[in-house]
Simulated scan of single mutants.
Amino acid sequence: MGMLKEFREFAIKGNVIDLAVAVIIGGAFGKIVDSVVKDLIMPVVGLVFGKLDFSNLFVVLGTVPQGTAMTLDALKKAGVPVLAYGSFITVAVNFFILAFIIFLMIQQVNRLKRNNPEPAPAPAVTPEDIVLLREIRDSLKRPPSNA
């Protein structure tokens, strides 16, 4: 029963929940970056290098059955081994863009931390009885007034 209690305490700690939320958001963010790379960046890169579709860049490593189309999908469905380097290029670009975006985010967080220094701690509040005792002490130290 002790291990179950320890696990429950571990699972409901804030760090575990924060990690779970980060993984979920990271997965969704990865899909967005994947779409940006595949749908926006790779077509432009492909146009610059003269190839319109990087996903169909491959090298056939085996024999192609008669009547099989020479596309990556058709070759994979036919069970032909292919070296799909175009897909690798897309994934590598995806990784570098994601890493660069994370770098920019961390850079901004660090800059915000530097611009907002911790406020100075508030001075300690002196209890009222101490203030009154100091006033009495100070009044006793003053020379008598000649009135």
Rank of each mutant, 00 (worst) to 15 (best):
F95R: 01
K13V: 14
A122W: 02
G2K: 09
S55K: 09
I24L: 15
F10A: 11
D18Q: 13
Q66T: 13
L57Y: 05
E118M: 12
F95K: 04
L140N: 09
T71H: 02
L61T: 00
T68C: 05
K141M: 09
V16M: 14
V91S: 07
L132E: 11
I89W: 00
P144L: 15
V59K: 00
S139D: 12
L98R: 00
V64W: 04
Y85C: 02
L83N: 06
K141P: 03
K38G: 08
R111N: 15
A22V: 06
I25C: 06
V91P: 02
K76C: 11
K51T: 15
M1N: 10
P117T: 03
P65C: 01
P43H: 08
A20P: 07
V109H: 12
G50D: 02
P144C: 12
F103D: 13
L140I: 08
V33F: 00
A11C: 13
I17E: 01
P117L: 06
P81S: 07
L4E: 09
R137I: 11
L47V: 04
M105N: 10
F100W: 11
K141S: 10
V82I: 00
A78P: 03
V93G: 03
K113E: 12
S139I: 12
G27E: 03
I101Y: 02
E135H: 13
I24A: 15
D39G: 01
K13F: 15
G14F: 09
I12Y: 03
L4V: 09
L40E: 15
